[in-house]
Simulated scan of single mutants.
Amino acid sequence: MASTTKPKRIRDADATQKRILSAARKEFAKNGLGGARVDVIAERAKANKRMIYHYFDSKESLFQRVLEDAYLDIRTAEQKLELDHLAPPEALKALVTFTWNYYLKNPEFLTLVNSENLHKARHLKRSTVLKDVSRRFVGMVGDLLKRGEEAGDFRKGIDPVQLNITIAAISYYYLTNRFTGSILFERDFMDQGKLDERLEFNIETVMRMVCV
């Protein structure tokens, strides 16, 4: 009897934690760490506050876990691009396109990053799981640049960290400032045609920076 009960309890616990994390991601993305309410998270997760604190200790710890999962998700998706199977120019275009599309499809990621920056990255500083995945990503971009150099496609000496910052920034700024930008520049930033134009501009910008 115990052998069948224990796996079921484990499955139930895993399912509960997933519901809590999903609800917490939405609440933190909408209201930030300070404005997020644990009782709202509990209600959306069909759990109770005691259960949340049992699994995650505190609201701060829950926010850290949500943030870690958000970064792990994008880093894992980047690794699945398998850029080493593409010619360097095509691989770089694929990375720029992926970043743009990921931000478009996951607006909660952008707001979570904004929130953590308001807290001066104190939760990321405590994280033990993100440094390795970030190093792997930098290594992946570094390998791509090296292949491009050897093939005569890319300039020498490009810093993979600087390149990643630029790729992220040209997508991030456009999307996080889409409301004010639409007013100031008198164009609908989220019109599909404008989104397509922006992606083309992002790709051209990066390729002009990197290519020989």
Rank of each mutant, 00 (worst) to 15 (best):
I183V: 15
D153N: 13
D191R: 10
M140F: 07
G181A: 03
S182W: 01
D159L: 10
V141A: 08
E149P: 01
K146S: 12
T180K: 15
A151N: 01
V141F: 07
F189D: 06
F185R: 06
I167P: 03
S182D: 05
F185A: 10
V161I: 14
A169Q: 11
L175C: 08
R187P: 02
T166N: 09
Y172P: 07
R135N: 15
F137K: 06
G142I: 00
I167Y: 08
R178S: 14
G139W: 00
T180M: 15
L184D: 12
G148N: 10
V138H: 04
I170D: 04
Q162N: 15
D159W: 13
G142V: 04
Y172S: 06
D188H: 01
G139Q: 03
F179V: 12
F185V: 10
T180G: 15
E150D: 10
D143Y: 05
M190F: 00
D153Q: 14
T180R: 15
I158Q: 07
G157P: 13
D188V: 04
E186V: 05
E149F: 01
S171H: 05
V141C: 04
G181P: 00
K146V: 07
V141I: 05
K146N: 08
N164V: 09
N177H: 14
F179R: 14
R178D: 14
L163H: 04
I158R: 00
Q162S: 15
I170S: 01
N177C: 12
G148T: 03
R136A: 14
R155W: 06
R178G: 12
D188Q: 00
I170V: 06
I170G: 03
S182G: 07
F154C: 03
G148H: 03
G157E: 05
E150Y: 07
G142A: 08
R135A: 15
I167E: 02
R178P: 00
I167V: 09
G142F: 01
V141Q: 08
A168E: 14
I158W: 00
Y174Q: 02
Q162P: 07
G148A: 06
V161R: 13
F189H: 10
K146H: 12
F137L: 08
S171C: 01
D153W: 15
G148Y: 02
T166S: 03
A169M: 09
S182N: 00
D188A: 06
R136I: 09
V141D: 05
T176W: 06
L175S: 03
G142L: 00
N177R: 12
G139F: 01
L163R: 00
K156S: 14
Y173C: 08
I170R: 07
R155C: 02
K156N: 13
N164W: 09
I170Q: 02
A151P: 02
